[in-house]
């Protein structure tokens, strides 16, 4: 554990802050690992800059935004939500989220016009878009912008935030990080809806939300 991580951990423990999962589980999945670049809009979510220049996100802020995002998502009809991940690393996470939340999903390429062209076979009319990576998922953000529907997005320190209406700061590059983030978000949406008891868990562990590459873990 780096000095930033142990400091963050002891701060959280000394304030007896209750997180959605134990701090060690967050840190092990690397949800707090940012990048070597930080956009101005993402600074408020940064805990510290490591001596090598890596921006470390504040786990408390990640946790807080996951709760708020879940509240927002739970106010929409399940089939009026679409979760998106163009990048392969997010595919399984998005599929599992959609399965439990009963939303629509797009994994892989976003067909241009999917939200704006009613003549397309794949045209859909969601009322809320959940995005994995603003850079890779730019197409859906642009279309949501055009038709005026809200966008909730995981955003890393190097991501631009234009067109995003609610940021969940997080490492959206790693498979394990995405798996844990979507697992927590899914569970929290179901808790907010009352479909899961406040302390109940999903029937599957975060591992089940992780994309396997080439059949390996």
């Amino acid at each position: 554990m780096s000095s930033e991580e142990s400091r963050m951990k002891s701060e959280i423990e000394s304030h007896a802050l209750e997180l959605l999962v134990p701090i060690d589980q967050y840190l092990a999945a690397g949800v707090h690992i940012g990048t070597y670049v930080c956009n101005k809009a993402m600074r408020e979510f940064v805990y510290r800059i490591r001596p090598d220049g890596l921006y470390v996100l504040d786990v408390r802020k990640i946790d807080e935004r996951l709760r708020i995002a879940a509240k927002m998502i739970s106010r929409y009809e399940p089939d009026k939500i679409v979760a998106v991940s163009v990048r392969q690393y997010g595919h399984q996470s998005v599929k599992k989220f959609s399965q439990y939340v009963r939303s629509k999903s797009i994994t892989g390429r976003v067909i241009p016009g999917i939200l704006t062209n009613p003549h397309l076979e794949y045209y859909m009319e969601p009322e809320l878009v959940v995005v994995t990576d603003p850079r890779a998922d730019q197409q859906i953000i642009t279309e949501a912008f055009r038709i005026g529907i809200p966008v909730v997005s995981f955003s890393d320190t190097d991501n631009r935030i234009d067109g995003i209406d609610l940021i969940i700061p997080a490492n959206n590059k790693g498979r394990r990080s995405l798996a844990l983030l979507y697992w927590i978000l899914t569970r929290q949406v179901l808790r907010e809806r009352g479909e899961l008891m406040p302390n109940a868990d999903l029937p599957e562990p975060p591992d089940a939300f992780e994309t396997r590459i080439g059949g390996k873990a």
Binding site: K71, L128, F145, I147, G148
Partner: peptide, 11 residues
């Protein structure tokens, strides 16, 4: 076409 949504936090 602005975006309109209930406050994510309090709704």
């Amino acid at each position: 076409k602005p975006v309109i949504f209930l406050c994510p936090n309090c709704g």
